[in-house]
Design a protein around this nucleic acid. Structure first.
Length: 508
DNA sequence: TTAGGGTTAG
């Protein structure tokens, strides 16, 4: 088994300085890439600040400095260097501008990134790709595709990197899902299909739109020796409820003495959690300790989730306690672990304690967890009050997931009128999940009128599903409306909805 | 000397 060796951050920092001072900037970059992620960046950035900003800088040094800024997410230093670039008259240099786009994009400053991009007079494939990638990585997949289309109208031709960026953009939202297949056709025509970066982005794309047949085909056709392709495939299987296949890939990786990274660990822990295989999860935990990855935030989060999904809340807490650095995501993972193990009130206690001490600022996902915990613990009024706090205390506009929780809270309480009012007044269209939970509550409380309305909405939203027909029939039966029950059976036949009538005993 | 794939919370 190959493990990443751990050398101190100082070693990397000194080596970086040495390479840089000798003018070996590309070697310096390699050193920078290998430096441990959580250490040394600050030191390197301050070195850049001292050596680039204070001197008359050649173009390549400015470029190198910008790469460091992008990697350390240091937009402040990036802006300072930008000022120097303008002052030195290098503001039309393509290399520098592509790097600048990258710095701003990595720091989430999309307006600045676009401004630099728009200011470039003559683009090359890298400058186009930098901006396409920037949009893709900032959740603007649709815009990334538009820019790609614009690029296609120019004389500059996209390369492998462009395809990797634009294919990744297609996984962002369902509206651009179908574009991925078209891009795959481009890739085949241009002969990029054997590029491992392209392959892994395609596997990821297909797995995210549920086309595992295509993902498996691509995986089978490549050499599969690349660790990222293997990790992508483990995640792809897990995402598509094929955890056993995911574990098989992992076992093969171990048998082949493949290099295991922290990505591998998180992906395989996710598979263990999905399958609830505690023993296997513990073995991977052993590997985590052996590799010295027990302080990596991604790995710690994956461990907490794995133990929580396997029902071992004590071990989940232990992992959390051992983590030196605790961010919002880890706190949310811990709250989720309590909520998932039926300890909703404990989950809420942690949340209240944290916000009281101002140790973390809850986000949308955290509120979804809290609201779900309230829902599952029957703390309906408390849940509604948390929902209101989102806006009043934290200035967070609720999103569709939190509205779904609120609707569920009102409906479970039997306040069907309020639940329906929320569905009508919220800034989103009520989806099938919302109407389904609403319909179930209508059945629970015997509200025929609202139940009928919900069922008819579901007939439109999910025309092939027999479930709303069956629930509505149950509701009618509970109210003694036997003629209506018979009509439902007729209605199902007319609409071509098929379902075994087992369980529909109320019809008699 | 510019750009790129996979990982954590419901």
């Amino acid at each position: 088994m190959l493990y990443k060796s751990y050398i101190t951050a100082n070693y990397y920092c000194n080596l970086f300085r040495f390479c840089w001072s000798c003018g070996f900037s590309s070697t310096a970059h390699k050193v920078f890439d290998k430096s441990p992620q959580r250490h040394g960046h600050e030191g390197l950035a301050s070195f850049v600040q001292g050596n680039v900003l204070g001197k008359k800088s050649p173009k390549y040094e400015l470029c190198s400095a910008l790469i460091c800024c992008a990697k350390t997410l240091n937009s402040h230093l990036g802006s300072q260097i930008h000022g120097k670039i303008v002052h030195s008259g290098f503001d039309q240099n393509l290399y520098i501008n592509s790097s600048l786009v990258n710095v701003y994009a990595k720091c989430g400053l999309m307006g600045d990134a676009m401004k630099v991009f728009d200011g470039i007079e003559l683009h090359d494939e890298v400058s186009w790709t930098s901006m396409i990638c920037a949009l893709s990585q900032n959740g603007q997949g649709g815009e990334a595709l538009c820019l790609f289309k614009e690029m296609m109208t120019t004389l500059v031709k996209p390369n492998c990197v462009t395809y990797v960026s634009v294919i990744s953009a297609c996984t962002e939202q369902e509206s651009v899902f179908r574009c991925g297949e078209l891009l795959h056709a481009h890739v085949i025509m241009l002969g990029h299909e054997s590029n491992r970066f392209v392959v892994s982005s395609l596997i990821d794309y297909y797995s995210k739109c549920g086309r595992m047949d295509k993902a498996v085909m691509l995986f089978g056709s490549c050499l599969a020796s690349d660790d990222v392709v293997l990790n992508t495939m483990i995640s792809a299987y897990t995402r598509n409820q094929q955890g056993e296949e995911a574990l098989k890939v992992f076992v093969k990786m171990r048998d082949a003495n493949a290099s295991l990274s922290e990505h591998t660990l998180t992906s395989v822990l996710d598979a263990c959690g999905a399958l609830a295989v505690l023993q296997m999860g513990k073995q991977v935990h052993g590997l985590v300790m052996k590799m010295g990855s027990d302080q990596n935030t991604f790995v710690v989060g994956a461990l907490i989730n794995m133990y929580s999904k396997c029902g071992d809340i004590d071990e989940a807490c232990h992992v959390f306690d051992q983590a030196g650095y605790k961010n919002n995501i880890l706190w949310t993972s811990l709250i989720t672990a309590y909520a998932q193990s039926g300890r909703g009130p404990d989950a809420l206690k942690i949340f209240d304690h944290l916000v009281m001490e101002k140790r973390f600022y809850p986000d949308h996902v955290c509120f979804t967890v809290v609201l779900t915990a309230c829902n599952h613990s029957g703390l309906l009024d408390k849940g509604i009050s948390y929902f209101k706090k989102m806006t009043s205390d934290y200035n967070l506009a609720p999103e569709i997931d939190q509205y779904a929780c609120l609707i569920d809270l009102y409906a479970r309480k039997g306040d069907l009128k309020s639940a329906k009012q929320v569905m009508e007044e919220m800034p989103f269209d009520a989806n099938a999940v919302m109407w389904s939970s609403f319909l179930s509550s209508c059945k629970e409380y015997g509200n025929v009128e609202l139940g009928r309305e919900a069922a008819y909405k579901l007939f439109e939203l999910e025309p092939r599903s027999p479930v709303p027909y069956l629930i509505l029939a149950d509701l009618y039966a509970g109210a003694g409306l036997w003629d209506e029950v018979k009509n439902i059976r007729k209605f199902m036949n007319e609409n071509g909805v098929r379902k075994s009538l087992a369980g529909w005993s109320c019809v008699g």
